[in-house]
Write a protein that binds this DNA or RNA. Structure first.
Ligand SMILES: [Zn+2]
Length: 532
DNA sequence: CGGCTTTGACCTGCGC
DNA sequence: GCGCAGGTCAAAGCCG
């Protein structure tokens, strides 16, 4: 994330300064054009990465298909127990006849529904009891039918009731909903789109404002760049003033200090150890099943009410389940608090904190990262509650930081587990703290830790009933994985499944941070034009 | 009211 | 042709 490291605070404070028409020196302009170029490069890279990702995904799929199907003992199923659509175990099996694909999905045996979420929308058109299998077979057509010819059959395995066999027939001639979202992320949010957004007063919705503000807040973490810019603007102001002071130095200094302070505060916010009354949650891999268990239970409870008790032609009663949306929030909340057991921390308004206590953030960050001085990666994700256009709901923001480090002497984070710390902070659009919690997590890879962070964000959003929240991560891989309906790597399937579950339950949206970097840079450019 | 599920009826292919 | 099993249709009903 090169672009993210060149940050500029563009929040409202700074905009007030711009009203006074401050000139900018050439070095700043140079910086900006450089960033602009970098951003372009990043976008190109993104396209390449995305293509590579898809290629890789296809290859992985193929490899998995070639692999022999190995039954795992029920005891070993620590992730996938009771998971509705956890595509954990069974590799796909492409039947000789092309276009027919069989997928084995681990589900809760007690759950009689035959719903397998795979990112596409289906319309059920039949259900039959088959000869030698007690559980019925459900027939689905793609809801884009007749334009899309894909059909699928879903039936529990005869050998293992915990496994659902899904037979796909044909190929979709359209993207899935998740692919659509991912595509929108990578392609639609290009410069021109952003520019249109910011040029049109109508389109400049509250949401976009918050989006940019939050991104600005995120980027202002890099005090290095804000320092430089602030200094540049300040010096230019002094030069240009020549007797006529457009901005009082005191006011300007105050603004700069504020920027610093906010930058410092932003660094402080995710720091778990600083949070009063913080109580971490250890979600080591052994415990990961918990969350899913709760989820599955809840899922199981819903949609039971409307089964017709009459049998079908063959004299068998079917119970079926509704789609998995719109479940009760109160229940949701209880579950979450029961299982996560994280204490919601007291809100802390950081804008009130005007005292300028110098903080060596670099040092502190290292301390907080743990004893290991060589953290592998840092993930930041942000959950934002958007205000829907017509709702007068105030905005709130939740962000989380993950710092991962090798568990053992840092040989390779692929071969050994890593431990990660996840701090989650809820904030409103002003940056005021609303809620904090944190957890430790041990995962098999950095990517898993990133997914873990995203999942935590999802869970927090769900806990608070933040429908339509936005979840951001600077890990493209994690976002991509969570946004595609393709079969994830086995080791990540549970996490991905969890994220997708919450995503659909709460209508969450996953974003890659670069998108917002782009948005911010647009605004930055506009600011500079204005300044000059 | 539209989209989806349910479910009995109907269609089709196959073996005898 | 008949019976059987798998697959599909479509009317009725549910639900947001
Ligand atoms: Zn389709």
């Amino acid at each position: 994330m090169v672009a993210a490291s060149h940050a500029l605070d563009l929040n409202l404070n700074l905009f007030h300064i711009t009203d006074d028409d401050i000139p900018v020196d050439d070095s700043t302009v140079g910086n900006l054009s450089r960033i602009s170029k970098e951003n372009k490069k990043l976008k190109e890279m993104l396209t390449i990465v995305w293509d590579n990702y898809n290629t890789l995904q296809t290859k992985v799929k193929k490899v998995i298909q070639d692999k022999e199907v190995v039954e795992s003992s029920p005891k070993k199923r620590k992730f996938d127990e009771t998971v509705q659509q956890c595509l954990l175990k069974r590799p796909n099996e492409e039947l000789p006849k092309s276009g027919i694909q069989r997928v084995y999905v681990q589900t809760d045996p007690s759950d009689k529904s035959l719903i397998v979420k795979d990112g596409y929308q289906w319309r059920k058109y039949g259900q039959k009891v088959t000869r030698d299998n007690p559980s019925p077979r459900a027939y689905y057509k793609c809801s884009f039918a007749p334009s899309c010819p894909v059909k699928k059959k879903v039936q529990r395995s005869l050998d293992d009731v915990g496994i659902v066999v899904v037979t796909y027939e044909g190929e979709h001639n359209h993207r899935s909903t998740k692919q659509e979202a991912a595509y929108a992320l990578t392609n639609e949010y290009d410069i021109s789109t952003s520019e249109r957004m910011f040029n049109s007063p109508k389109a400049r919705t509250t949401f976009n404002e918050v989006l940019v503000e939050q991104m600005a807040a995120y980027l202002s973490k890099d005090s290095n760049f804000t320092d430089k810019l602030a200094a540049a603007i300040y010096s230019k102001t002094l030069d240009a003033n020549s007797g006529l002071e457009l901005v009082s130095r005191a006011r300007f200094k105050q603004s700069i200090n504020r920027i610093h302070q906010e930058s410092v505060d932003l660094r402080r916010v995710p720091s778990i150890s600083r949070l009063k009354g913080f109580q971490g949650v250890d979600t080591t891999s052994e415990d990961q099943g918990k969350l899913m268990f709760g989820r599955a239970e809840r899922y199981d409870k819903k949609g039971r009410g409307r089964n017709s008790s009459s049998g079908n032609g063959k004299g068998r009663n079917f119970s079926s389940q509704n789609k998995s949306n719109g479940s009760g929030q109160a229940n949701n909340h209880n579950r979450m608090t029961d299982e996560v057991e994280a204490e919601d921390l007291e809100a802390e308004n950081q804008h009130d904190a005007d005292e300028n206590q110098p903080v060596n953030t670099e040092q502190e960050d290292q301390i907080e990262a743990g004893n290991d001085p060589n953290p592998v990666t840092e993930t930041q994700s942000i959950v934002r509650r958007s205000s829907r256009i017509n709702d007068d709901v105030f905005h709130s923001v939740v962000s989380s930081d993950t710092t991962s480090m090798p568990k053992t002497n840092g040989i390779s984070h692929e071969s050994s587990h890593i431990s990660a710390a996840i701090g989650i902070v809820a904030r409103n659009c002003n940056g005021s703290l609303l809620q904090c919690l944190g957890e430790k997590c041990r995962s098999e890879s950095v990517l898993a830790a990133e997914l873990c962070a995203i999942r935590s964000d999802c869970i927090l959003a769900a806990t608070n009933g933040w429908n339509h929240a936005f979840i951001e991560s600077n890990s493209l891989s994690a976002i991509s994985l969570a946004s595609t309906e393709d079969v994830p790597p086995l080791s990540l399937a549970a996490l991905v499944s969890d994220i997708q579950y919450w995503k659909s339950q709460m209508n969450l949206q996953l974003y890659w941070l670069l998108v917002h970097v782009t948005l911010l840079l647009i605004k930055l450019q506009k600011l500079l034009t204005f300044l000059m």
